[in-house]
Simulated assay, not measured.
Amino acid sequence: MTPPVPHPPTAADVEAAAAPSVLVVDDDSWTTRAITAALRDAGEFRVLDPVHTGEDAVDVFVASRPDLVLMDVNMPPGMTGVDATAAIIDHDPRAHVVLLTTVAPGPGIARGLEAGALAVLNKTAGESELVAVVRAASAGESPELLKGLAEDIAISGEYLPEAPVSAPQLTERELELLILLCQGFGYDEIAEALGLSMHTMKTHSRNLRIKLEAKNLAQLVVRALQFKFYSPE
């Protein structure tokens, strides 16, 4: 029997394969159902079947390597979202994880960011905000993901993890940049506000990461709070 001739992939097939893949993790099935439906309705993501435990989140990540994991912080009993985030980042330091929180952010946010998460997203966020955050975070870290992050950490009332180093000496320009990042301004806005070229501004950003031992932009916000370089009002 002559084997069937394979058909070349259609434009729709190629587009679907190129769409960012997203895994939603939450112990509440109503939450995963709502978020999954909203992202699928957006038509620009490939949403995997949601899971409801930290252990399953790690297993699915290892097997499927989604571009983004939306991770509930607290999932009793068993592995918490913080521990699952740490395990995923340990498996692949380039993994992108966004923490899911409740209406009033609770404990776990700072520890989740310390574990390597890029941002925090409220479970009650509107569809437009949800899609915008997933779109940005799928591509990697971005200053736009920091908006409101310092305030969320402060509201959580969580004791901040101990900083890995003593408070370093920052230049005036580095401190200005750090404060603007904590306030959620984008690179373009910061460069314009400080009268810097994009290259110079990003050089200062790299220096900040080195001095503060921050793996990503979100950890810069945590360090700014730990060392009291920034205090949300």
Rank of each mutant, 00 (worst) to 15 (best):
T2H: 14
T2M: 13
T2P: 15
P3F: 13
P3L: 14
P4H: 03
P4Q: 06
P4T: 03
V5R: 13
H7S: 09
H7G: 07
P8L: 08
P8N: 04
P9F: 07
P9W: 10
P9N: 03
T10G: 14
A11G: 01
A12L: 13
A12G: 03
A12F: 11
D13Y: 08
V14Y: 00
A16I: 12
A16S: 12
A16T: 14
A18W: 05
A19C: 10
A19H: 07
P20V: 05
S21T: 15
V22S: 04
V25F: 10
D26H: 02
D26T: 00
D27V: 04
D27Q: 08
D27H: 12
D28Y: 01
S29L: 04
S29V: 06
T31R: 00
T31P: 00
T31N: 05
T31F: 03
T31H: 03
T32Y: 03
T32S: 05
R33I: 04
R33M: 13
R33T: 14
I35Q: 05
I35C: 00
T36P: 00
T36G: 15
T36Y: 00
A37S: 15
A37H: 14
A38T: 15
R40F: 01
D41I: 04
D41F: 06
A42D: 15
E44P: 00
F45T: 11
R46N: 12
V47G: 05
V47M: 04
L48C: 05
L48D: 05
